[in-house]
Computed example of a mutant assay.
Amino acid sequence: MRIFLIVFIGSFIFCATSCAPRVVSSPNSKVVYVQKRPANYKVVRVNGKRYYRWNGKNYRKTNKGYALVR
């Protein structure tokens, strides 16, 4: 009975942890997206990259919208 219990617990631990996906979150995961840019934006180029500026903040265009650049 003792061997059965050890084998059962060992197999449970092995099966429970082997399929678990690892999710690594970065500490800088707070990204602000804006869906539409306002009419009073300006295009700014820095090192050949295009940024959109309005309200004193710079944004870059992504697939999800416009991301705030810090």
Rank of each mutant, 00 (worst) to 15 (best):
P21C: 00
P21W: 01
P21E: 03
R22I: 15
R22E: 15
R22Y: 15
R22N: 15
V24D: 11
V24E: 14
V24Q: 10
V24C: 05
S25N: 13
S25Q: 13
S26K: 11
S26N: 12
S26F: 13
S26A: 13
P27D: 12
P27N: 13
P27R: 12
N28F: 06
S29Q: 11
S29V: 07
S29C: 07
K30P: 01
K30S: 12
V31S: 04
V31A: 06
V31T: 09
V32I: 12
V32G: 00
Y33I: 13
Y33C: 03
V34L: 05
V34H: 01
V34Y: 02
Q35I: 14
Q35G: 06
K36R: 11
K36A: 10
K36C: 05
R37K: 15
R37A: 10
R37Q: 13
R37C: 03
R37W: 10
P38F: 05
A39W: 02
A39H: 04
A39Y: 04
A39G: 03
N40L: 04
N40R: 07
N40Y: 06
Y41N: 03
Y41D: 04
Y41Q: 04
Y41E: 06
K42E: 14
K42S: 14
K42N: 11
V43R: 06
V43T: 15
V44Q: 03
V44A: 02
V44S: 02
R45P: 00
R45N: 14
V46D: 07
V46W: 02
V46P: 00
N47F: 10
N47P: 02
G48Q: 06
G48E: 08
K49Q: 11
K49Y: 10
K49F: 07
R50L: 12
Y51P: 01
Y51M: 02
Y52R: 05
Y52Q: 10
Y52H: 11
Y52T: 13
